[in-house]
Design a protein around this nucleic acid. Structure first.
Lengths: 225, 225, 225, 225
DNA sequence: TATGAATGAGCTTTCATTCAT
DNA sequence: TATGAATGAAAGCTCATTCAT
């Protein structure tokens, strides 16, 4: 009992409160950084805009993250992690590989549409030739199993004689990624050059139908579908 | 004669020479700007790095281009133009639509591979939500006929009953773009996350085969190919 | 007995322990501050380097010393005090004034060599025109009797007709100080400019011999030595 | 004639004017830097105080000197150079070595008194363990012949049997330096601790007499003076 | 007593840009 | 046409210091 009191002692509680607040501050900064870096890239993203957006001050960014580069690294980690978690939440029915595959395409496209910051930051990271990702061991671990959703589905489909045995999971993965990602990443220039509103739900949905069709046609055994 | 000489006077000659030199200086700066903006983006690209790279000096950039923004605009124009010109040089045999379509895929992929600066700058422009492209009338004109190669080929194939009538040129265009562009634009993060060297000729060529397959499967009428 | 125990109660004991710990923390900080200020000067010395060097944290410095300025003041006091104490430990034989004088030269030189932090901090204090020393009454008291060792020795030598009556203790004191201090305080630039290693024991010992010679020659009555 | 005009052409003249102004700006900054670094040291010296003192702006310091460190290096070089030049202007009469030696002591003391910035900056450089001087080849060249004034005088005196053959020029040089430099470099703490105004002309002059006496006694052959 | 969290002012440095010739 | 010199604004970052528990 007494020991209970001690474990609930003001000191511990106090520490808890402060630590909680601190975690929140850190989180607010990280969130603001995601937003700002997504909008302006690493070079264009301003420390003081981030701190203002986070209702904090410049100094805290250095307190929690060291410098701009390290902050960007954590931003990268956090968006990869969020993507992974979303993927993990995808519940696929392996008993219907075709439908499951469609589900993956739908999910991927929806995720990119809903997370322009993911696309923007990934683009910026590629502009810098993956410089930050290469630095971080965390990042390489985070995305270790990039094909973990697709692989069982595709292999199950192959086993059942639905999907072509001569297509690799890797190429299928890249195909789906390309068809979904490109639409989002290049929407602004495409909107201008094709005079077509890539943000309109109608256009998005017809594109989704198209890429599901493309994807299936690329793996289905002829005469099966 | 003497008066002829005068009309060919040093001044005029000099002007001619100078104009030539001027054009060269301008060209050198533009080329350097393409390089620097491709490497560091608009925000990260430094005026003085460009002028050094061009063996010129900062002041000349302002003399010829006004400011950084306008310089970037010209850079955009120049890379779009170069792409268009390359496309125009493509000589397609309409009498064999399937082969012609393959040729377009090959060309597009090869162009992106050979012109990382095109991909990088387009990415950066998308990061900035097409801000610069939207400003320039030139740019919109340049890329007015973005599907000019593909359209006749595809329509010829449809006419001949080779290609599906329910696929739009637009979607086909986007499909090819996505499959070729994504490989290049995201190669750095993909290289890290998939532990696969996207620069290796072998991997590139197997990907090319794959996307030709995907493209054809997406348009060919079943049982025809 | 029991009450005795109470007066020796945990609280008191704890206080005693804590007070002891507190004194130790304070001492560790002071020691670290001496080191850091000696290496980087007042302006260059960083609070957080001091706290890290002391295995403590910034806040403690403010708790114990108020601010950077006051900490520096205590540092000054502590090094003056240490010098004074070392001087006081010098046991001179007044019956042999010449030997005693030599002893003072030896001691002074040895002290500066062994205490580069003393020299460095004194230099820094002079850079700031004695700003801190002037503020502190303590400091002026500490070094009230700066010539307390030298005076009796020199006066004894004068009384015995060994030392010139026309030389002042003050000038003799400054002479010894100059000859010993300068060697240490300027050793780094001298090492560079004279291409001579001022840290080498041989060079130090020949210099000691030289300055003993110079000192004696400056006070001995001609024909006496 | 025509060619004369060309060499006097506006272009050259114009360039000349601007270049002249530029040199002046640079010089003003350097002078201001000497002052500020002398007063506050390297760490304490503020870039913006220097630029204000120079009636210029921060940016120009970076334009002309690169960064604070390099500016300090040039400051060091400039004060060493000034000292060397002053030394070179000293016209010594070798036919009277004793008087010449006195002249050197007088000059050295007078120089340090007149140039507190030299003493202060040298002190600061020693605080940083000669870090900057070691970096610069220029500096090592500048002060290559640090004993060039003293050497001929002393050797002439030795040749004539006036000066002791067992004293090295090097030690004599250090002796004079120590006796003159210390007075200046440590005047602020000494003024406080000895309760003696080291700035007063009387005290300075009695010290000069004393150190001339000390110096001569350290080299004169007994019975000669 | 001790310590993480927070802060504002100010530091060095860089940037795009303009001036003057 | 070309170029060194100059500039103000703002960038990233560090500093000594204080708050809150």
């Amino acid at each position: 009992m007494a020991s209970d009191n001690i474990s609930d002692s003001p000191q511990v509680v106090r520490t808890g409160k402060r630590a909680q607040q601190a975690r929140e501050t850190r989180e607010k900064i990280l969130k603001a950084a995601v937003k700002v870096f997504a909008e302006d890239g690493f070079s264009g993203g301003r420390i003081d805009r981030i701190s203002k957006e986070a209702d904090s001050n410049d100094r805290m960014i250095y307190y929690y993250f060291g410098n701009k580069e390290k902050l960007f690294l954590e931003v990268l980690e956090s968006i990869y992690l969020a993507f992974n978690e979303a993927e993990r939440r995808l519940d696929l029915d392996l008993s219907d590989p075709v439908e499951a595959l469609k589900g993956i395409v739908r999910f991927t496209f929806a995720y990119y549409l809903a997370h322009p910051e993911f696309v923007a930051i990934l683009n910026d990271e590629n502009l810098h030739r993956g410089r930050h990702s290469r630095q971080s061991n965390n990042i390489q671990n985070i995305s270790g199993d990039i094909q973990s959703n697709l692989k069982p589905v595709f292999e199950e489909g192959q086993k059942r004689g639905l999907f072509r045995p001569d297509v690799s999971v890797r190429n299928l993965y890249l195909t789906i990624s390309a068809l979904t990602y490109f639409y989002c990443s290049n929407q602004h220039t495409l909107t201008i050059f094709m005079n077509q509103d890539f943000k309109s739900p109608e256009f998005q949905s017809q594109w989704l139908n198209h890429i599901i069709d493309v994807t299936l046609n690329s793996v289905m055994i002829r005469g099966e579908s």
